[in-house]
Design a protein around this nucleic acid. Structure first.
Length: 497
RNA sequence: GGUCGGUUCGUCUAGGGGUCUAGGACACCGCCCUUUCACGGCGGCGACACGGGUUCAAAUCCCGUACCGACUACCA
């Protein structure tokens, strides 16, 4: 039997970092065993689901490169089938109508309300305590026929237990007495999550369910439904959660954009790097390698490598340099600096285009120059964004001067105000403006003036790039060329800021 | 409150009875290189939650405690 897995997000927000990892693991697993990776949008919560969210999730998946192998399934389209299953179970006596009036929706923190109620009960609750559970078929049918609203609940057997073997967490057992007679169909006719999931997974012929650990206890309820339906449940593998610093839940409300996939795309992350980072959150190949191509991940991915404890996505909202996880930033920098140049170029092009810095000559007459330049400056970059910000001076005359660089490397040495334009004159007189020739000129100029090489170089760096950091100045001079170097060295703009 | 699960450096993790005076990565700190640095090189700081067992031997097995998490909805 072919392995078939699915990623099943509910469209109530953007693609969350935890969901993205779930998608990744499903994808890797499917590819590793030569199975199918499917996508199902669980949009049965009409109140919270939005098309906007669906679009955002699809966008995130597309960026990460996880295209489903079959058409996307929208769960809401299957509502009729789900209803039919609930009715069938009712007919077979495996479910019953509950005529208890629907409770008013609680305001405030629902989880808290539930916990409080449970505490008030002192933890003892008879899960079978429902006056309609054993109502005669005749009376139930009659009350339904008279138009009385009802929900359909699964009739969980009195004795026994649900057991399943989780690929990550091992054997899970739960006594039936711990599971309530869960609602299958709401009184307004809408199927509920646990029913919908089971029905769809059966219909989609899902063989392995890989999802967040928050569904671990739900699994018992779902197994009960599988049993009532007489269908063999799929294999389950639950993933540890990704938490916020402090071990708290990572949420949109509290942590904002930091949890959204599109944030990383927009911040100049490479999908390959982010995938790599995500793969290492909760999974390990058991070796010391950390940089993996997609193919390597696919080849090495094993469910056994997933661990049981939650991981923390580490970041400091108050520190701009650490706005997201350090390791994610490092990983991206590693990719930017070391990936084959030819693969990086298209991304740089896109970035420069969106910053209005792109020129078609970069792929034509100036192709060699462009490639050399990108290769030179990427050494110190972290994201694609850096090409249009820190790297701006290489592609435009309109760049900003970093105040600190100006103060530290220019203003502190007032003599540079005349020395640098003088150096420009020397440059202007040069015929061969190559690395070695430039070095020769700058060195003799420095000696002649009794100045220091570092002072001259860093002053020039501030003038030519606006920054205090960057590649070797000899390379910068050569890259920018004689004309621009001369012009910028003479410019008084930075001196008058 | 109940049920279930988890706990190795600040973070991601290796390890699954002796090879562990616990390895790697990120971050941090120091030194070196150097015309700068967010590059590179070298080094440092830094963890088996706690308490009992079992065993010749426990980070690894068992029990308890603490802490954290999930679930406990006519949400998904």
């Amino acid at each position: 039997m072919t392995t078939r897995v699915r990623f099943a997000p509910s469209p109530t927000g953007y693609l969350h970092i935890g969901s993205a990892r779930t998608a990744l693991f499903n994808y890797l697993y499917a590819r590793n065993v030569g199975g199918k990776f499917l996508l199902r949008i669980e949009d049965t919560d009409m109140a919270r689901s939005t098309d906007e969210s669906t679009r955002s999730i699809l966008e995130g998946l597309q960026w990460l490169g996880f295209a489903p192998d079959e058409e996307i399934v929208f769960q809401s389209n299957n509502a009729d089938k789900h209803r039919a299953v609930a009715l069938k179970l009712l007919e077979e006596g495996k479910a019953y109508r509950d005529f208890t009036p629907k409770a008013a929706p609680s305001d405030g923190n629902i989880k808290q309300t539930i916990a409080d109620r449970a505490r008030a009960n002192q933890g003892v609750k008879d899960m079978r305590d429902n006056e309609f559970r054993d109502l005669s078929k005749e009376e139930s049918d009659q009350r339904a026929a008279s138009g009385e609203p009802f929900a359909i609940r699964l009739k969980v057997p009195e004795t026994g237990k649900t057991v399943f073997e989780d690929a990550v967490y091992g054997t899970n057992e739960r006594d039936y007495a711990e599971t309530e007679d869960l609602v299958l169909l709401r009184s307004d006719g809408h199927p509920l999550y646990n029913l919908a999931v089971v029905c769809d997974d059966i219909e989609m012929e899902i063989t392995d369910v890989i999802r967040g650990q928050d569904h671990l206890t739900n699994t018992h309820k779902q197994i009960l439904i599988y049993e009532a339906l007489g269908v063999k449940p799929p294999r389950f593998a639950h993933l540890p959660l990704i938490l916020a610093p402090g071990g708290k839940k990572l949420s949109k409300r509290i942590h904002g954009e930091i949890v959204s996939m599109t944030t990383y795309r927009d911040a100049g992350f490479l999908a390959a790097a982010f995938r790599n980072f995500l793969a290492l959150l909760g999974w390990s190949a058991g070796e010391e390698q950390e940089i993996y191509s997609l193919d390597e991940l696919i080849e090495k991915f094993k469910l056994e490598g997933i661990h049981r404890s939650n991981a923390i996505f580490n970041f400091d909202a108050n520190n701009p340099k650490r706005w997201t996880d350090d390791k994610a930033i490092w990983m991206n920098a590693e990719y930017v600096r070391t990936m084959p140049l030819a693969e990086l170029l298209p991304f740089v092009k896109t970035e420069l285009k969106s910053a209005k810095l792109w020129r078609d000559e970069y792929e034509d007459d100036d192709k060699a120059w462009f490639e050399n330049t990108v290769d030179l400056i990427r050494e110190r970059f972290f994201t694609l964004k850096d090409f249009s910000t820190q790297g701006r001076a290489y592609f435009s005359e309109d760049f900003d001067f970093d105040q600190k660089a100006v103060e530290k490397n220019l203003l502190k040495f007032s003599e540079l105000k005349t020395l640098l334009p003088e150096l420009a004159e020397r440059f202007a007189a040069m015929e061969d403006f190559s690395h070695d020739a430039i070095e020769e000129t700058v060195k003799s100029f420095t000696e002649e003036k009794g100045s220091k090489l570092g002072v001259i170089m860093n002053g020039a760096r501030a003038l030519l790039t606006g920054l205090a950091v960057g590649p070797s100045m000899l390379a910068v001079f050569e890259t920018l060329g004689k004309e621009k170097s001369v012009m910028r060295l003479k410019s008084q703009v930075a001196w008058n800021l």
